[in-house]
């Protein structure tokens, strides 16, 4: 794919998004470790296990997705001339997944009831769909030898 003035620089976009979101989720991990260290009840009490699970999942998914952004950026760098439409869709879906998946888990852990996460968890299926779609599009790109 030839980069034109109107074509987004996907490599730059995903490197930027990947490293910054990795920073955010590493900081979240550090925060959660601090909660452990200080034995904070709103995070560690048995009655708050749902919150602990949700925020752990937010941290794990956010961190992993950040690394996927970096890998995707490297892939875009290595194979610059693949289909623009596919790449645009994959890029948007990947960014959507990175916002919706960890965001859904995080908001689902802020308020919860009877062992079920809060309404924020409704974002997670949409995020998962975005991720699935992005992975599918990226996999499609790899079908063609350069």
């Amino acid at each position: 794919m030839q980069k034109t003035p109107n074509t987004p620089n996907y490599t730059h976009r995903h490197l930027l998004f990947g490293w910054w979101s990795l920073l955010v989720f590493v900081l979240l991990g550090l925060t959660l470790e601090t909660f452990h260290g200080l034995k904070l009840g709103f995070y560690l009490d048995m009655s708050n296990t749902t919150r602990r699970l949700m925020w752990t999942l937010a941290h794990a998914h956010g961190g992993l997705l950040a690394l996927i952004h970096v890998v995707a950026a490297l892939m875009f760098q290595a194979f610059p001339d693949r289909g623009h439409t596919t790449r645009r869709q994959a890029s948007r879906a990947l960014i959507g997944a990175s916002l919706l998946l960890p965001g859904g888990f995080f908001f689902g852990g802020i308020s919860f009831f009877n062992g079920d996460p809060g309404y924020g968890i409704a974002l997670v299926p949409f995020g998962a769909s975005c991720l699935l779609f992005a992975v599918f599009q990226l996999a499609r790109e790899c079908r063609h030898e350069s």
């Binding site: 009840g41 709103f42 009490d45 048995m46 009655s47 708050n48 919150r51 308020s111 919860f112």
Partner: peptide, 11 residues
């Protein structure tokens, strides 16, 4: 019988 999630006391 179930400690409320927003109850600041420890379990």
């Amino acid at each position: 019988m179930h400690k409320e999630p927003d109850d600041p006391r420890s379990l």
